[in-house]
Measured scan of single mutants.
Amino acid sequence: TTYKLIANGKTLKGETTTEAVDAETAERVFKEYAKKNGVDGEWTYDDATKTFTVTE
């Protein structure tokens, strides 16, 4: 399944996707990606669109 991340960070803005077996796995991947890019904010997830959003 393809999951999408929308990053609304102070230093990183944009979108990326990952293939994962479930939302929990995708969330781990995206949180690691955000951490590597210095983004720390509020996370939301929309199951209907398989989209995570992080906003600083």
Rank of each mutant, 00 (worst) to 15 (best):
T1R: 10
T2C: 13
T2P: 04
T2A: 05
T2Y: 09
T2I: 14
Y3F: 11
K4E: 02
L5T: 01
I6N: 05
I6W: 05
I6V: 11
A7I: 15
A7F: 15
A7M: 15
A7W: 15
A7L: 15
G9Y: 07
K10H: 12
K10L: 14
K10Y: 11
T11R: 07
T11K: 10
L12F: 15
L12I: 10
K13W: 12
K13I: 12
G14Q: 12
G14W: 15
G14Y: 15
E15C: 15
E15H: 09
E15L: 13
E15I: 14
E15T: 14
T16N: 06
T16H: 14
T16W: 15
T17D: 05
T17M: 10
T17V: 09
T18H: 07
T18S: 04
T18C: 15
E19D: 10
A20E: 04
V21A: 14
V21T: 12
V21E: 12
D22V: 03
A23S: 09
A23F: 14
A23N: 06
E24A: 14
T25S: 13
T25L: 05
A26H: 00
E27C: 14
R28Q: 10
R28F: 08
V29T: 11
V29N: 06
V29G: 04
V29Q: 08
F30Y: 02
K31D: 02
K31W: 06
K31E: 03
K31C: 05
K31R: 15
K31V: 06
K31M: 08
K31Y: 06
E32V: 07
Y33C: 06
K35F: 11
K35L: 13
N37S: 07
N37C: 13
N37A: 11
G38W: 04
V39Y: 10
V39K: 02
V39F: 14
V39L: 15
D40V: 14
D40T: 14
E42V: 15
W43Y: 02
W43S: 00
T44L: 08
T44N: 08
Y45N: 00
Y45T: 00
Y45W: 03
D47T: 08
D47P: 14
D47F: 07
A48K: 12
A48W: 07
T49H: 05
K50F: 09
K50G: 04
K50M: 07
T51C: 05
T51F: 02
T51D: 00
F52K: 00
F52Q: 00
F52R: 00
T53R: 08
T53W: 10
T53C: 07
V54E: 00
V54L: 12
T55Y: 10
T55H: 08
T55L: 07
